[in-house]
Computed example of a mutant assay.
Amino acid sequence: MSDLTELLDSLVEAWNGGDAAAYAAVFTDDADYITFDGTHLRGRAAIESSHRWLFDGPLKGSTMSGVGDAMIKPLADGAALVIAGGGTAVDGRHRPSVVTFTAVRTPEGWRFASFQNTRVAAR
């Protein structure tokens, strides 16, 4: 499912470039986006707005890594579950997470319809 790998690559590239519009573009218009602290964003516009604030503020210059090592599980024609490790680094501190996406095929190509970020607890 190379299309989904490319979609994940686009997500990482947009994050690492601090590009909120490009980051939000990998999601469906009505996507559900759950952040590590349980905040529930609804829709592409909310995803873009919140990430614009993050990229201009507390996460400015942060980097994302690791999502390329994803498990992709087809669920039905045009739908897949994507689970990936990785996380973000801010000021040299890595914050590992496990992220889960529901990917759907749309007229524009594959997009993420849902996202859940779970921070990995320190051990």
Rank of each mutant, 00 (worst) to 15 (best):
M1F: 10
M1W: 09
D3C: 02
L4N: 08
L4V: 13
L4D: 06
E6Y: 09
L7R: 02
L8Y: 08
S10T: 08
E13I: 05
A14C: 03
W15Y: 10
N16F: 00
G17C: 00
G17R: 04
G18H: 04
D19Q: 04
D19T: 01
A20M: 06
A21I: 00
A22Q: 13
A25D: 11
F27L: 00
T28S: 11
T28P: 03
T28V: 01
A31W: 05
D32T: 14
Y33L: 03
T35M: 13
F36L: 11
G38V: 08
T39Q: 15
T39W: 12
H40G: 04
L41Q: 10
G43N: 06
G43K: 09
R44D: 01
A46H: 06
R52I: 06
R52Y: 04
R52L: 13
R52S: 10
W53L: 09
F55V: 08
G57N: 07
T63Y: 01
G66M: 00
G68E: 07
K73N: 14
P74N: 06
G86A: 00
V90F: 14
G92H: 07
G92T: 05
R93C: 10
S97Q: 13
G109V: 02
W110S: 05
W110F: 05
S114D: 08
S114Q: 10
F115M: 07
T118W: 01
R119Y: 09
V120S: 12
A121K: 11
A122I: 13
R123T: 15
R123W: 13
